[in-house]
Each structure stands twice: as C-alpha cells, then as structure tokens.
Design a protein around this nucleic acid. Structure first.
Length: 185
DNA sequence: AAAGAGTCCAACCGCGACCAG
DNA sequence: CCTGGTCGCGGTTGGACTCTT
C-alpha cells in the first residue's frame, strides 16, 4: 500500500524530496544514523543523498525506523494509560509516549484523535445527561478536587481521586507512577 | 457497482526551547 | 546579553483505505 503512495508522490519531487519514504531511503537513513547518531539531523540531511530536510529525517527515524518501535493496535492497558496520562499531562504527546515503550508521540496523538477523544466525548455526554437527569442544582463534593486542562481538555473534567486510584493496577504499571510523582514533587 | 462519508496514518509546518559562539 | 543554528514538539494536512447508502 505504501508503495503506491510512494510512486505517486515521487513523481512530483524536485530538489527536496517530499512525501512518503521509500525502502531505499529508509536504508540510507538508517545507515546515516548509525554513523552520525540519532541527533545530528542537519549533518545526516546534508551528508547523505537523501534530499530530505533534517526534520523529515528525524521524523522518519523517530516514528518508523527507530529500534523497538511497537506496531499494531493498542492494548487495553496502553489505552487506559494514555487516557490517564492525557488527563494528567494534556496534549504533551512526547511525554505520554515516553511512558509507553515502543510507541511514538505521533502514533499516540493519532490514536487519541481517532479513538479516545471520541470515547471521552461520548462518556461526557453520558455523564452530563445523567447529571441533568438527576437535577443540576446539587453542588459537587467540595472535598473532591477536579482538574480541567487546556484546549480540548477543557471539555474534560475529571476526578483526581479516581485518577490516582491505582488499587486495581498491577505493580509494574505502578512503577512509573511513583517515579512520575517523585519527579513532579 | 458507484459515490460519498468517515477513518486512519504518515508526513509537513510553524513555533519555541536550547545552546554555542 | 544577543544571535543564528539546530532540534523537538504539537497541530494540521493529504491521501489511501474502508464503510455506508
């Protein structure tokens, strides 16, 4: 499938290659990264005959060629983790990706937009209907704090106590939480 | 079978942070 | 400090694929 895309896009290239990467380009990039390391993107872009800009090289490496990239659908555990982390961090995709080994920020961002944001919208609708049904007048429990994020998070209001309730979590999942809390404090 | 709508994903763009000189 | 170069991040777009009518 990618190949058809590639052929079409290749036809329009001029000095700077744009569009999908070919297998050959991937190979060259991987070689260059091996030589220069995954930091010297300017060097990699200029010393190879890829005719790609440094950003493009970096992106390709980070999102596709990097070792240990996990492909395929998200597990329930990963999905749950993303939800929690997004509530905590907002649209800090790279930070969220850092907590999900093998997943890229781009992948998580895409997954969020196509799956999770809708899920949340639906569940929020459900909640607001419920609240309307049970009458709006009552105040929320003042002992419970809620957090509201920016931009699209502004739609998301959540309960901190629920968020930090890891009673059902297995120990390995909890490891990062404690580290994270340490870091933040 | 065809057309239109919706979904998914790779890639690009613009901006800000960081750092060396 | 200031400036220019480089890198990383988040938002957005484009196009192929899939589903629905």
């Amino acid at each position: 499938m990618a190949l058809r895309k590639v052929e079409k896009l290749r036809a329009t290239k001029k000095e700077i290659n744009r569009g999908a990467w070919t297998v050959e380009e991937d190979r060259k990039l991987a070689e260059a990264v091996e030589i220069h390391g995954p930091k010297q993107w300017k060097t990699i872009a200029t010393t190879t005959d890829l005719n790609r800009c440094d950003k493009s090289c970096r992106l390709r490496w980070m999102n596709y060629l990097r070792p240990n990239i996990k492909r395929g659908s998200m597990s329930d555990q990963e999905e749950d983790l993303i939800l929690r982390l997004h509530k905590l961090l907002g649209n800090r995709w790279s930070l969220i990706a850092g907590r999900l080994p093998g997943r890229t920020d781009n992948e998580i961002k895409n997954y969020w937009k196509s799956h999770l944001s809708k899920k949340i919208e639906k569940s929020n609708e459900g909640i607001s209907r419920k609240e309307e049904g049970s009458k709006s007048g009552e105040k929320t429990n003042p002992s419970k704090s809620t957090v509201t994020g920016s931009s699209e998070d502004s739609k998301i209001s959540f309960d901190l106590d629920d968020f930090f309730d890891f009673s059902n979590e297995n120990p390995s999942t909890l490891e990062w939480v404690s580290k994270f809390v340490d870091l933040n404090s």
